[in-house]
Structures are given as C-alpha cells and as structure tokens.
C-alpha cells in the first residue's frame, strides 16, 4: 500500500491519472469508516491534506466558490454563513464537532449518499461542481453529479475541486429529521432557497429518493402565491403554506428502511416544507 501527500491540484491529478484506482482521502469521515471496517482495502491513498488550494473559498460578485475540502466548521463560522445560510445550517447538523472539523462538501458529494446533508441545499442552489482531471476541467450540476444511491458520474481519476453557487438573495432554510439533535443520519431533510431578486423558489429533499430531488410544481406554486415585497416575502393566505407542504411531499418517493417508513418520511417532508416556508416568510 502507498500513501501520497501531494501539495497541489496538478500533482494530485497526475497521481490520479497514473493510478486511477487510488482512494482520494479528504476529511476521511466516510472513507476511514470503510477502511476500519474492511469494506474498503485501498492499494493506494491520495491524501488531500496538503493541497491548500482546495481548502480555500471566495466570494466574487454574486458567486460563492467553495473549495472541495473546506470543512463544515468553516462554512458555519466564516462569512460563508451569511452568503449561504442554507448550507451553513446544513453544515451545523452534520455529525458532531469532530466530524464538522474535518468533513468536507467535496467528500459529501463524492460519497453521494441520499442522506448527504449538503446535497439538497446545493441542489436547491443550482450549484455547479468543478471536476478536474489531467484531461481538463468539466462542470456538472449537482443534480446531474449524483445519479443513484452512492453513485456519481465521477471518473476514477477525477477530482472535485470546487462547488459554485449564487450568494443568497433572500431567505434559505434547511430542516432535517432524525432521532437526536446531533450525530444524525437524516430520516428526511428539506432545503428551501428563496431568490428575492429573481422572485423564484427552490425546494429540494434529502433521504427520500436515490438521487437529488427538486420539487418543481411546489416551487412554481409558492412563487406564484408569495407576496414579493421589497422588504421580504409575505403569504396572505395561510392555506398556501399547507398546500405547499403537501405538494412538496407529493414530489418525494421515499422507501421503508431500517431508519424509518415511507409514510413517516412523507408526513415529515410535508411538515418540514411548511415550516421552512413559514420561517422564510416571517423572519
């Protein structure tokens, strides 16, 4: 077995090109569990610890560019929290301090679990993933990156370098259901992104479908029934909130599994979607 510690993206890409079977190691919070439990026996590991350029972020004009290995704790505690409150809320629900200190959005996306908490937020933000290899850079929307349960379109020698999404222009909410307030793999989750400038609503769900799920009909319904004012959004008819909740739940296709039942997940989604829109309108 070998462990490489490249110090630049270029060097990383060359290593991955020479050895596409290598396991990329970012925070290790998914990969090390698999190694400890012998679900994965890598012949080689490429650690991103010293690739400092992947751990930086910038806000340029209206766009956030988040390096793949920026840890959750930084998303919560830096200016990123104001630029992307939905992502900051989702980050704060991940695991524990220890997991948030090391876990990364790049790792969350590459794992591609239906329960990955950043995925619904990034799907609602129409985020773009920058993927690099020695062949160059390609850009893929988050909703197209993950194609099934823990299945992505990443080639073995490809590296996620960054994720881009617009700076918040309006309220964002992330809600998640699980048995505790911490250390929870979500039973169901819901992200809501209101874009005041464009007068649009985006809603995406987690843990209720194999791949990221947007709720198009509910989004259009909400956008059409919101009172768009210059100092925030209002909803005059309270039934709008209920209808929005049930339309979002209709978009979900949950299953029964060891964590919950499909029926509970659908119920939970309706409650979370209604709550998310309520919070967005009253805050």
């Amino acid at each position: 077995m070998t462990v490489s510690m490249p110090s630049s993206v270029d060097e990383t890409l060359r290593l991955l090109s020479d050895d596409p079977a290598a396991t990329i190691l970012a925070g290790g919070t998914d990969a090390m569990v698999e190694i400890n439990y012998e679900h994965r026996r890598p012949a080689s590991v490429v650690s991103l610890r010293r690739v400092n350029e992947l751990a930086t972020w910038s806000i340029d004009g209206g766009t956030v560019r988040l390096g793949a290995t920026v840890p959750y704790v930084e998303i919560m505690n830096s200016e990123l929290a104001a630029a992307s409150p939905g992502l900051a809320q989702a980050s704060r629900t991940v695991g524990s301090s220890q997991i948030r200190n090391t876990g990364t959005v790049g790792g969350n996306l590459a794992t591609g679990s239906p329960a990955g908490d950043t995925i619904p937020v990034l799907a609602a933000l129409d985020a773009i993933v920058e993927i690099a290899s020695v062949r160059g850079i390609r850009e893929v929307a988050v909703v197209d990156l993950i194609v099934g349960v823990k299945r992505t379109v990443l080639e073995p020698d490809e590296l996620i370098v960054a994720i881009r999404f617009p700076v918040a222009s309006g309220p964002q909410e992330f809600l998640k259901i699980g048995p505790r307030n911490a250390m929870v793999i979500s039973v169901a989750s819901c992200a809501l992104v209101i874009n005041q400038a464009e007068r649009s609503v985006a809603c995406a769900l987690g843990s209720v479908s194999p791949a990221p799920l947007r709720c198009g009909d509910a989004e259009e319904f909400a956008a059409a029934n919101i009172d768009w004012t210059s100092d925030g959004i209002r909803i005059t008819d309270p039934r709008t909130l209920e209808t929005f909740g049930s339309m979002v739940a209709d978009a979900a296709s949950p299953i029964d599994d060891h964590r919950s039942t499909a029926a509970y997940r659908k119920h939970g989604i309706a409650v979370m979607a209604r709550r998310a829109l309520t919070r967005a309108t009253t805050s």
């Binding site: 462990v3 190691l25 925070g27 290790g28 919070t29 090390m32 569990v33 190694i35 400890n36 439990y37 590991v45 650690s47 695991g95 524990s96 301090s97 220890q98 997991i99 200190n101 090391t102 250390m183």
Partner: peptide, 22 residues
C-alpha cells in the same frame, strides 16, 4: 466510526476522532 468520541485527539490544534485519521 466517529460516533463515540472516545478517541478524540488534537491535530494541529483541531479536535478530531483519531479513528477517522489515516
């Protein structure tokens, strides 16, 4: 698997689970 915290250490001053560090 990072669930219990019993293996916590500091790496470069950051609290981590040592079981999740290669």
């Amino acid at each position: 698997q990072g669930e219990c915290g019993a293996c916590s250490v500091l790496i470069d001053g950051v609290l981590v689970c040592s079981c999740l560090e290669l």
